[in-house]
Design a protein around this nucleic acid. Structure first.
Lengths: 175, 175
DNA sequence: GTCTATAACCTGATAGAC
DNA sequence: GTCTATCAGGTTATAGAC
C-alpha cells in the first residue's frame, strides 16, 4: 500500500480512538500528513471508504497481536492477562478500543464498517472462549469479559486512570 | 420547571442515548417540540448549558429508580438483578446509558458535564458495592459489574440484541 | 417565550489544472 | 498524486421584532 495512505490510516485510527468519528475530519487528517483534504479523498473516495479500510487494518493488526500472544504464551489464563495488557497500553495513550468507539457511533456507520465492527467482537469473543475452555473455566464468561473490558476503557478514560482495567486483571486471575 | 423545557430535556436525553452528542442538534430538538432553534437556546443559553441541565435530570431520575428498588426489594442480589433490568429496558428502546454515551464523547464535554458524568459512576459504583457487601460477596467486583454493564449495552446495541446483558444477569446470580 | 433573519464557521465532496 | 477553488449543506449562536 501507498506510504501516504498507510500514514493516513494509522493517524485516522488513532484519532477515532481518542475523539470518535466526529473528531476525525478529512481536513485535519490531511494536515497531519501534509496534504490537502481533496488529496485525502483521492485515496478513499469518501469518509465511509476511509472507515471501511481502516477498520480492516485495525482488525488485522489486533488479531496479529493475539496470534503473537498464543505463540509466546501457552498458559490460557496468562494469555487473557496479556489481552488485558493490550487494552491497558491503548488506554495509556488516552485511547480506547477502535471498535468500542465505533460501536458508540453505530447509528451512522455504513453496512461494511458495521459488519467489520461486529466481526471484531465475534472473533475476540471466540478467542477468549477458547482460552477459558482450555483453562477449564466457564466459557460463557467470554461475553462478560469483553464487555467489561470495553466498558472499563470507556469509564477509565473519563477518569484518566486504569483502575477498572486493573480490577479486571485481578478478577481474571481468579477464574 | 417550564413544561416546554421539560420536554426538551427529556427528548434531548433520549436522542443522546440513541445517537450520541453529535446526533443531538438544537434545530432538530426544537422541531421535536414545535419551536425554533433560537427558542431552544433561550432556555439553555447554549448547548453546554443544555448538557449541564439534562445530565442532572438524568442522574436524579436514575437514582430515584435505585431508591425505589431499595424500598421494594430487600434481597441485595435481587436488587442487582433489578439494576440489570433497568439497563435492559433502556436497551429495548435502542438506547444505552446516557453517561456511557457521554463517556465516549468525554473529550468535548465541558467541566460541569464531565463532573456530573463521573458522579454518576461514583454513585452507582457505591450502590453496587453496598449491595455486594450486604450479600457477603466481594465488593471489589462493583467496578467490574458497572463496566460490564456499560460495555454490554454498547456491544448489544450494535448487534440489536441483549445477549450480553442477559449473560451478566446469569453471572450476578452466581456471586 | 417565540419568532425571523443572519452571521460565522465547519463539514464532506467535486471539478479541473498541474 | 496533489493542488486550488468552490459548493452545498450543516452547525451553534446572536440581534432584534413581536
Amino acid at each position: 500500500m501507498n506510504e501516504t495512505k498507510e500514514k493516513l490510516i494509522k493517524i485516522a485510527i488513532s484519532t477515532i480512538q481518542k475523539y470518535g468519528i466526529h473528531g476525525l475530519t478529512i481536513r485535519e487528517l490531511g494536515n497531519a500528513v501534509g496534504i490537502k483534504s481533496a488529496s485525502v479523498l483521492y485515496h478513499f473516495n469518501n469518509k465511509d471508504g476511509l472507515l471501511n479500510e481502516l477498520i480492516k487494518v485495525y482488525n488485522e493488526n489486533f488479531f496479529q497481536l493475539l496470534h503473537e500472544i498464543e505463540k509466546k504464551e501457552s498458559n490460557p489464563l496468562k494469555r487473557l492477562d496479556d489481552l488485558v495488557s493490550i487494552f491497558e497500553s491503548v488506554l495509556d495513550e488516552d485511547k480506547i478500543c477502535l471498535c468500542g468507539m465505533l460501536a458508540s457511533d453505530n447509528e451512522i456507520l455504513d453496512e461494511i464498517t458495521k459488519e467489520q465492527t461486529k466481526q471484531f467482537f465475534n472473533d475476540i469473543e471466540k478467542w477468549i472462549e477458547k482460552n477459558l475452555s482450555e483453562h477449564g473455566s466457564n466459557k460463557n464468561l467470554a461475553k462478560i469479559i469483553i464487555s467489561s473490558l470495553e466498558g472499563a476503557m470507556l469509564i477509565d478514560k473519563l477518569y484518566n486512570e486504569s483502575t477498572r482495567l486493573k480490577e479486571i486483571r485481578v478478577w481474571i486471575k481468579t477464574l
